[in-house]
Every structure is written in structure tokens, then in C-alpha cells.
């Protein structure tokens, strides 16, 4: 059974109640089918109400759910013949980012993404999906390779952020991220990114300078985590819930601001409820995006990406 999140508690409670009633009916041998049917109808209504009125903080919880499908889950379900390629050729192989080559609907592509673990052991190996510079440099190496062989690139974004550590600073965390922004701007092949969980700041953006930006319905993309924002704004990380709202970090917020292209709908209750169906939905969006972009020339692809980011900003031009 999947872990519950606080906003789902009323649903969980009602489900338990129905279960208890069923048990009771069985053991006491009384007919409670009418009551059970009423409660089931109420459960259905409740699910509809809760899942269609999710607060930003509820979405943060879904985005962080340990059982939420990861990059490798989507790779397995959407692509065929995936071959993982490792290493940045300078320092090492960062397992917080995975990448490789595969077929997408018969077309060779390069696919790259942040990779967190589901259980503790894997999470430690993958540093909770928080990359070091060598992770970003591996990603860039694979992107350049894709460009050489004219393969489109698909990036999955799923990280709390680039790792804030001593070694990361020594090896140039800033430079590694900056370099990716710069080099991605010049890629001659179509690039699409999908935020599948958390899109944490520069560490997320380093895979995000793309022609199309999609976000799963319950994913987030932000300059700082809600906890970080709360501790800076109100000196209290416990106010993360309010910060999640104030910082406008949901897919719906980013669509409204015109930063992302599409919100990819999730199965009821979140992607973890049915990864198979979710992967299929995601695949349709990728297909549509790649079809649109494959009609463009190299110059058009670069210009399209330039214009996409060039226009982001909110300011007033005062008349001189």
C-alpha cells in the first residue's frame, strides 16, 4: 500500500471505515450493503473534491512521494533498448544523474535525468538525486554526443537541487551548472525537458534550457525550496506550507506565468498510483513535442530556444 500524505487523511480514514464496516457485516452476518454503498459514494465524492482542489503544499508532498516514478521508471516504460552511458571523462560517474541512448517510438534519442533512490540504500548511492559537478558534466557530454549524431534530447528533471557540499564547490559546481545553461543554448537538435518531481533551482535548470518545458501536474519548479524560502522570509522553516503558496512553484503557477509549455495531467491521486498509465500519458506529450520540433531547421531550433528564454521577465519600461 502506498504511503499516505497529510492532505489525503480524510480519504484514508473513510476507506478504513468502509473496510471496518465490511468486516463487521461479515462477522455479525448482517446486511450493511446499503450503508457501505452510501459510504463508497461519499468516498468517491471526497476523492474528487480533494484531488481536484489540491493546495500547493499538497502537490509538494506528491512531488516528493518516495514512491513517485523516477527517471529510470519512465525510461523503462517509455523507451526501448536503453543503454546507460556513464562518466564525465574528467572526474567520475555521478549516479545522481543517469543518461544514455535509446529508441523512442523507433527513433534514436538521448535521454538524461536526475535520479533519486526510492529506498535509503539507493538514495545514499544516488545522493538523493542531488548532483555534483561531474553529474552535470556527464549530462553535457551526452548532449554534445547527441548533437553530433543528430539525436533529439529528452531530459527529466527531478532534484531538490545541486548538492551543497565541499567537494562540489572545489570541483566547480557553479561553473558546471553555468556551462550547461550556455552550451544547451547552442544545441542544434531538439531538446525537451519534463519536470517529473521537484525542480530545485539551478540544479534543475542545468538540464532545463530546452525548446519545450513540460511539467507533470503535481511537480514543482522553484528558485528555492519552500523550507528554504520560509526560513529566509520568516526565519521559520516550519512555515514551508505558506512559502509553497507565496513562491508560486506549481505547474499551474508556471503555466500561468508563461514559463512552461504544457502541464501533463496525472492519474488521480498522483503518478505513483499508476506509473504505467502515467508513462503512457507522458509519452503522448513527448511525441507531440518531438513531432513539432523535428520540422524545424537547426537555425530555427536554436532561435526557438533563444526566444523562449529571452522573453522571460516581469518589468516596466518607463517612458524616458
Amino acid at each position: 500500500m502506498s504511503k499516505s500524505m497529510s492532505f489525503e487523511e480524510p480519504i484514508i480514514k473513510l476507506r478504513q471505515k468502509i473496510e471496518e464496516l465490511r468486516e463487521l457485516a461479515k462477522s455479525a452476518d448482517v446486511d450493511m450493503s446499503e450503508e457501505i454503498r452510501t459510504l463508497e459514494e461519499r468516498l468517491h465524492q471526497l476523492e474528487l473534491k480533494i484531488y481536484s482542489n489540491m493546495e500547493p503544499w499538497d502537490r509538494v508532498q506528491v512531488a516528493r512521494n518516495p514512491e513517485r516514478p523516477t527517471t529510470l521508471d519512465y525510461i523503462e516504460k517509455i523507451f526501448t533498448d536503453f543503454i546507460e552511458l556513464h562518466g564525465d571523462r574528467c572526474f567520475g560517474n555521478d549516479e545522481a544523474i543517469v543518461g544514455g541512448i535509446a529508441f523512442f517510438d523507433g527513433q534514436p534519442v538521448t535521454v538524461i535525468g536526475h535520479q533519486r533512490g526510492k529506498a535509503t540504500k539507493e538514495n545514499i548511492r544516488r545522493n538523493f538525486g542531488m548532483p555534483h559537478p561531474e553529474g552535470y558534466r556527464k549530462a553535457l557530454r551526452l548532449m554534445k554526443q547527441a548533437e553530433k549524431f543528430r539525436r533529439p534530447i529528452i531530459c527529466f528533471i527531478d532534484t531538490k537541487g545541486a548538492y551543497p557540499g565541499k567537494a562540489a564547490e572545489e570541483r566547480g559546481q557553479s561553473e558546471a551548472i553555468a556551462r550547461n545553461l550556455f552550451e544547451m543554448a547552442g544545441l542544434k537538435v531538439p531538446v525537451i525537458c519534463v519536470v517529473i518531481g521537484e525542480g530545485g533551482s539551478g540544479g534543475a535548470l542545468a538540464l532545463g534550457v530546452t525548446n519545450r518545458i513540460y511539467m507533470l501536474e503535481n511537480s514543482t519548479y522553484s528558485v528555492i525550496s519552500p523550507e528554504g524560502a520560509a526560513s529566509i522570509l520568516w526565519k521559520d522553516a516550519a512555515l514551508a506550507k505558506q512559502a509553497a503558496e507565496a513562491m508560486k512553484i506549481t505547474a499551474q503557477d508556471l503555466k500561468k506565468m508563461g514559463i512552461i509549455d504544457e502541464i501533463i495531467p496525472e492519474v488521480t491521486g498522483g503518478a505513483h498510483r499508476d506509473p504505467e498509465t502515467q508513462a503512457n500519458i507522458l509519452k503522448q506529450y513527448l511525441k507531440k513535442g518531438l513531432d513539432e520540433l523535428s520540422a524545424m531547421s537547426e537555425e530555427e531550433i536554436i532561435r526557438d530556444r533563444y526566444e523562449k528564454f529571452r522573453k522571460i521577465g516581469d518589468f516596466i519600461e518607463e517612458s524616458v
Binding site: 550556455f182 543554448a185 534550457v209 528555492i224 530556444r305
Partner: peptide
């Protein structure tokens, strides 16, 4: 921070111009 993700995107905007 007060401009949220729009500020984050300025990193990309300046970088594409530098490219």
C-alpha cells in the same frame, strides 16, 4: 527570491545571450 522562478530563469536568459 521575491521574484521566484522568474529570477531563476534570468540565469538561462543571460546565458543564452552570452552564447
Amino acid at each position: 527570491m521575491q521574484e521566484g522562478v522568474i529570477s531563476l530563469m534570468q540565469m538561462a536568459k543571460t546565458s543564452v545571450a552570452l552564447k
